[in-house]
Design a protein around this nucleic acid. Structure first.
Lengths: 338, 338
DNA sequence: CCAGAATGTGCACACGTGTTCATATAGATG
DNA sequence: CATCTATATGAACACGTGTGCACATTCTGG
């Protein structure tokens, strides 16, 4: 042990070459498919590499025009459950596709600064999964030549690929289900207007109402607490027979308040959410909701990543995902289903 | 537009130099603090860089002995809520510390393979946040000269830094609180024995019982469903007055079953969890639990990262985190407290 | 005015890898 | 045997950057 700092030096191809008694080129070839190299020699090299813990340095390889496989995922501060679940699935999905997802998150200022700095890596793409901000981040990426994939919010910009769920159609189907079940006096708990999903889901609700108007309405923050508060506020007004919520977190908050208030679900008031987060399926809640399909989203993103790699100059496209109405007990009225 | 593939070429320092009419060295210096460079010239360079969207290539810089700031986070399949919350906080925390967290996750085989391949990057550390597996991954990392930080499970191996919560002491305090509140017939829902936290927490429970024995006991999977099933199974046995659960997810599952069964919490049966996941604080649950401090964990990890950077050859150390008993209504007995 | 320090700048090297190129050897084909 | 092809291998280059080095210029103090 000559120098303490030397101890941690990473093994290099030259080290392996020396140990195996071959040229450095041979070592490189040993790790590359489809090259001419004596089989016995290759084995000897791989063995030597294993012995001293060598692996080709991805940084140096990337410098050589090799695919970096690095991908950044920009999540906001992930306030609600759905964002967390989506981020986790996305990361593991990319992983399975051989990509290396770098997570960028935290509070607005921190995340935005990090998003800017991470561009010093030759990213294969920047994936935006933050409902609210992101348009300026996208602009910076495009300028740097880094492809952008926006999920959950459509960004109108050259070269930006978009993935979005059919918010309006989904909500329309959900509310239609409530109406078919006998609900007539519907109150709506909406999301913050800074999220593009909020007005779309509200529009879907109005679609299903036909000419009818909402009994009452207010705007929440997509959090459970705000759903709780909203339910309390709306209950004071003209007695509704259904709460339609722009996402599951708020629906679960509303459910909590209604139970505390002694309201029977769904007989007195039916409840509808949006997203189908894991918790909504738990027996304790059993919330009827509209599934925002995470697996489809992940599949679409890896697909877009692939297409972009094939043709870096291709036009940006928009992929729309279908929702699925998940009927559970929070909407199972005892009234005759028409 | 001469060639379509040329279009996406990343801007290089030489491009900036040409545009700004300076040497390439000057460009490099413009982006480095503490170098001699005419102020007016630096500004001109930065402006030119901004114009063509240039940023120093982290790959090439890393090749130069520069810190990579890359960190891998190995999470298992994140079956339970606490893992998801911890992973999210860890990622954003590292972010704020100027690190780039690469998430590695998914099913066992996929994650393990990915963990091996990610070592081709010059990682500053591999952070293990998977309760069960990980020892073999750690061995590979150490061999490659990549420092390992294990969180939630202590790995006895040279050069591995460990962070762990005081499971035993925490659980002891929690159960003592129940006993002080009048509980005498305690049933225990444990975690899978493959997680090192499971036996520790159980030991803490037994500590608090003094000579007493558990009324009943079974082993769950740290999931809500298994907690639900366990509660049903245990309720058939000699009537307990408290359920102690090895984590919050199982406690919430148990709570769900008990409510369905018409059992009053906490008057008939008190409930104790472990972790203090976000949901436990929601009014719908209001679960008494032992906080597994995520913020402290993140702080400890960044601290260890720093120390390791200062002295790469230092010995591995063990940091133990203190829990905090969070008293909520699931343990608030009407019986006189003492 | 002079010596020395402080500041500014370009050249050239090193980092670790993949790959082209030239060359050498062995095997097949006529 | 002569040619041609398939296989094997090392030398050399390129990737984009940070920085040591040598040299030029300006400033400071006597």
């Amino acid at each position: 042990m000559y120098g303490p700092s030397k101890r941690t030096r990473r093994a290099t191809a030259a080290d392996v070459a020396r140990l195996a008694g071959v040229s450095r080129s041979a070592v490189s070839r040993a790790f590359t498919k489809g090259t001419y190299l004596d089989a016995e020699k290759r084995e000897r090299i791989l063995l030597a590499a294993e012995e001293i813990g060598y692996r080709p340095n991805a940084l140096a390889a990337g410098l050589q025009g090799q695919q970096s496989n690095l991908v950044a995922i920009f999540v906001g501060d992930m306030p609600n459950q759905y964002d967390k679940e989506a981020a986790a699935s996305l990361a593991t999905g990319l992983n399975a596709a051989g990509k290396w997802p770098i997570m960028i998150g935290g509070s607005d200022a921190v995340a935005r600064a990090a998003a800017s700095r991470v561009l010093s890596f030759p990213l294969e793409a920047m994936i935006l999964r933050s409902g609210s901000l992101g348009a300026d981040v996208a602009a910076t990426c495009i300028k740097m030549g880094v492809p952008v994939i926006s999920s959950g919010r459509i960004i109108e910009q050259d070269g930006v690929d978009n993935i979005c769920v059919r918010n309006r159609e989904g909500m329309r189907e959900g509310v239609a289900h409530l109406i078919k079940g006998g609900c007539q006096r519907i109150a709506y708990i909406g999301g913050p207007s800074s999220f593009s999903s909020a007005p779309e889901r509200r529009a879907g609700c109005l679609d299903a109402l036909g000419g009818l108007e909402l009994i009452a309405e207010c705007e929440g923050l997509y959090t459970m607490e705000s759903g709780y508060d909203a339910a309390r506020a709306l209950l004071k007004e003209r007695r509704p027979d259904a709460f339609v919520c722009a996402n599951d977190a708020m629906a679960l908050g509303a459910m909590t308040y209604l139970r505390e208030a002694g309201v029977c679900i769904p007989d007195d008031i039916a409840l509808l959410g949006f997203d189908d987060i894991e918790m909504s399926g738990w027996p304790a809640f059993d919330l009827t909701t509209i599934r925002n399909p995470i697996d489809d989203m992940v599949a679409a993103i890896t697909e877009l990543l692939h297409r972009r790699a094939m043709d870096p100059a291709k036009e940006g496209e928009v992929i729309l995902l279908d929702t699925k109405l998940v009927k559970r007990s929070s909407s199972r009225r005892l009234l005759p289903d028409r």
